[in-house]
Design a protein around this nucleic acid. Structure first.
Length: 193
DNA sequence: CAAGAGATCATCT
DNA sequence: GATGATCTCTTGA
């Protein structure tokens, strides 16, 4: 069943943990694609220097300040999109970055969208995942209760996971060491160990 | 296999 | 005008 808005209104850490083992569904004219989430990161509030919203409320970060259960998609490095899910209460900027998923359905379609079609390389990283799932900024602000992009609970308990510091945020001072990255143990589909 | 460079642009100063 | 929540390819051991 589709995750309700109340799921995303929990604390960002809880959402990030509980997303592991949930299923990301992308409906698209080319075909539908489904992946099992195996890696997430939490970005929490205006004081978190790794969180874009620590720079203030701008056109780019506006979605993060909005209500939970919406997609925050941004473009970076001139090449890649990143998919986040807005969490917590309206007015408090926080989100969970989806970093990796295990391909489940629509694998052939994912391969056509990706350079390297090896199964383990289709969505093992936030940029790769957005390519495989055809996520771009047209989905920024999309409601996750809609039919284009959403998460599904298929009755699987949250798998065993571990926490590490987040990737690529060396500039974030004391926040760079916080264990806000969560990854499924024993999954070969994470971005890195 | 590890390390490094290059690609390329929206966003903020 | 600088930089980034990245990826791929190339290089060298």
């Amino acid at each position: 069943m589709k995750l309700p808005r109340s799921f995303y209104e929990q604390t960002t850490i809880d959402v990030a943990k509980q997303l592991l083992g949930k299923y990301l569904v992308r409906r698209h004219p080319e075909g539908n694609v489904v992946g099992r989430v195996v890696e997430t990161e939490a970005y929490i509030g205006p004081q978190d220097l790794a969180c874009h919203a620590s720079k203030g409320r701008t056109a780019r970060t506006e979605v993060m300040f909005g209500p939970a259960g919406h997609a925050y998609v941004y473009f970076i490095y001139g090449f890649y999109n990143m998919l986040n899910l807005v969490t917590e209460v309206k007015g408090y900027p926080a989100a969970v970055l989806i970093r990796a998923a295990e391909p489940v359905d629509g694998i052939e379609l994912m391969k056509t969208r990706r350079q390297n079609g090896a199964l383990r390389n289709l969505a093992s990283g936030p940029g790769k995942l957005c390519q495989a799932f055809a996520v771009d900024r047209s989905l920024n602000g999309a409601d996750l209760r809609g039919n284009v992009l959403y998460l599904e609970d298929r009755g699987e308990p949250v798998p065993k996971f571990r926490a590490t510091p987040r990737i690529g945020v060396d500039y974030a001072g004391k926040w760079k060491a916080k264990p806000y990255r969560f990854l499924v143990r024993d999954s070969e589909f994470v971005s890195k160990l």
